[in-house]
């Protein structure tokens, strides 16, 4: 679909998940390669967060397969996936509140192979400069604003150089300046490290601006997929999500 399954970085194959009687996902399939920004849209409760949770191992799917670079990862724990190059951010930023900004970035580095202390410090400071938090390195994370916490969470997701980053609503409630900052960082990371991003957002115009591909979930099924321009014009998407008028 979006890319040939054989050379895909991520391939999601007929993933189904129900919670009790609720069908959160009813057979979702798609795939994409590296250096891709993929936007995921859909109404509230359409299964977007559930899909991210399944890709990074928080939930096991009822059926279907997830492959990263061709190897199935179903049954892997999130920590194993993190080591394997999949990281994520949450729908509400979840940073380690009582630790300093720099310490927040050390924790993933500690659990990512052995790294010399000086190298880890350099990497952390590099990332802080990249997202524009260098001046806050020694502040506790709780002293940051909501938007800055998003930047920190984003930096924490990138610090181990993942191949795939899953982001849940990164732009929600964020000032345009920080939003611009995030978008710039996402683009630069794709360009420099060939990282791919799967981004869930209700801010469709922002997604259209940065995404190479787009998917729309409606009631746990892929209602449309393709280029952003095509998806936002799709009849089912307009009907089921964007609305007319």
């Amino acid at each position: 679909m979006l890319s040939e399954a054989s050379d895909a970085l991520l391939s999601v194959d007929a993933i189904a998940k129900r919670f009790g009687g609720v069908v959160a996902l009813g057979g979702v399939s798609f795939a994409f390669g590296s250096s891709a920004i993929v936007g995921l849209i859909g109404p509230n409760g359409s299964g977007k967060t559930t899909l991210l949770n399944i890709i990074n191992g928080v939930y096991a799917p009822d059926s279907g397969d997830i492959r990263i670079n061709g190897a199935t990862t179903v049954g892997w724990r999130p920590s194993a996936l993190a080591t394997g190059g999949v990281s994520r951010t949450f729908q509400t930023a979840r940073v380690f509140q009582t630790l300093t900004v720099r310490q927040n970035l050390f924790i993933p580095l500690l659990h990512h192979g052995r790294m010399a202390r000086s190298a880890a410090a350099r990497r952390a400071d590099e990332l802080l400069a990249f997202v524009g938090l260098a001046d806050f390195a020694d502040h506790t994370a709780s002293e940051l604003s909501g938007g800055q916490q998003r930047l920190l969470e984003f930096a924490r997701a990138l610090v181990t150089r993942p191949r795939l980053v899953l982001m849940d609503e990164p732009f929600a409630g964020v000032h345009p300046t920080i939003k611009g900052q995030l978008i710039r960082c996402i683009r630069e990371t794709v360009g420099r490290e060939s990282t791919s991003f799967l981004i869930v957002s209700h801010e469709v115009p922002d997604l259209v601006r940065i995404a190479d591909f787009m998917l729309c979930l409606v009631e746990g099924k892929v209602a449309a997929s393709g280029t952003p321009a095509a998806v936002v014009r799709d009849e089912t998407v307009v009907e089921g999500y964007l609305g007319r008028g």
Partner: peptide
């Protein structure tokens, strides 16, 4: 530090590799 990360936010800790 892994324990501290768990204390601060266990789900986030797991997701970053703890």
């Amino acid at each position: 530090w892994a324990l501290v990360a768990i204390r601060e936010d266990e789900d986030a800790a797991e997701v970053i590799g703890v």
